[in-house]
């Protein structure tokens, strides 16, 4: 221990084991009390409430309805992830190429939504899309429609709103990687005969993949467990897992089933993340 401390003192960039422990202890305590403990409780409930056994899991996994909701949750998350990638990549690319005021303007447009509460943004969508909302009023006034359209509580609405909420995460994780690609690599590619598209395809895109992967992973995981937006903007036919779990804890007070569903969702998330990570490692070896 003494040797390690002396070693740490000699290397100003590294902390010794004791200092590291002291520095991460607050976060570890916080996680233990407010995350690990409740999660253990939920896990515990899932096997004991109301009776000891795996009845809750049989209900969760045996029900067509719950399985359908689980599949829908995964499917919506995949679509939202794909949309944020397709919409976000060009923004991130532009942000990494411009400078000065233009860059500031884009950064503000990306960050202000991120700094605004998800609740506020979801309600904003309701204001826009409700029966007598801004969109319907406009369409009625211009005579394009006779009856207000039902825009809320549809799958498409949930997808659009979730894409909107999660877009900044995708943009920022791609941007952070794009920005770190040295400018002289593009210059070298250009000097060696590559046009704009070839430079992108052979140099920029492959080097930005770590940002794409981390953005995809982050958005997908958040989408899988997304609660507020689907709960506010979605209807019964767009029910997602977290909303379902919410219902069990607040309406039916079936904590055992809520626990089982939570464990299933957590397990699925970990499984998909693991598969994704394995696919990346294999590809990493292929390069």
């Amino acid at each position: 221990m003494a040797a390690a401390t002396a070693n740490a003192a000699a290397n100003p960039r590294g902390f010794g084991p004791r200092a590291s422990l002291v520095l991460i202890l607050p976060v570890m305590l916080l996680l233990a009390v407010f995350f690990v403990l409740p999660l253990t409780g939920l896990l515990d409930q899932s096997f004991r409430s109301p009776d000891l056994g795996i009845a809750n899991y049989v209900r969760a996994l045996g029900s067509d309805l719950y399985m359908k909701i689980l599949l829908r949750t995964v499917w919506l998350s995949v679509i939202v992830t794909a949309l944020t990638l397709v919409l976000g990549y060009p923004v991130a690319l532009t942000m990494s190429r411009v400078s000065g005021r233009m860059q500031l303007a884009i950064a503000v447009c990306v960050l202000i939504p991120l700094w605004t509460s998800v609740l506020v943004r979801s309600y904003a969508w309701i204001v826009l899309l409700q029966r007598r909302g801004i969109v319907n009023e406009f369409l009625l006034q211009t005579g394009l429609i006779d009856q207000p359209l039902r825009l809320l509580y549809r799958e498409g609405t949930v997808i659009v709103a979730m894409t909107h909420v999660l877009l900044p995460f995708m943009i920022l994780s791609i941007y952070s990687v794009l920005r770190s690609i040295p400018k002289d690599l593009s210059m070298a590619a250009s000097n060696l005969g590559a046009g704009g598209f070839s430079t992108f395809r052979h140099v920029i895109w492959p080097l930005s993949l770590p940002g794409v992967y981390s953005g995809v992973l982050m958005v997908f995981i958040i989408a899988l467990g997304f609660y507020i937006t689907p709960a506010l903007l979605g209807g019964p036919e767009t029910l997602m897992m977290s909303t379902l779990i919410g219902q069990q804890t607040t309406e039916t007070l079936d904590w055992g089933l809520a626990g089982a569903l939570s464990v299933v969702l957590l397990g699925l998330t970990l499984l998909l993340v693991g598969l994704f990570g394995r696919a990346l490692r294999l590809e990493g070896k292929g390069i």
Binding site: P182, D184, L185, A188, S190, L192, P206, L207
Partner: peptide, 20 residues
């Protein structure tokens, strides 16, 4: 003429090799 049509060789200060 844009750089990719000049057919000139160039060695950059930090080499600019494609890391991937």
């Amino acid at each position: 003429v844009p750089p990719n049509r000049r057919d000139l060789g160039m060695v950059f200060q930090r080499y600019a090799l494609f890391p991937h």
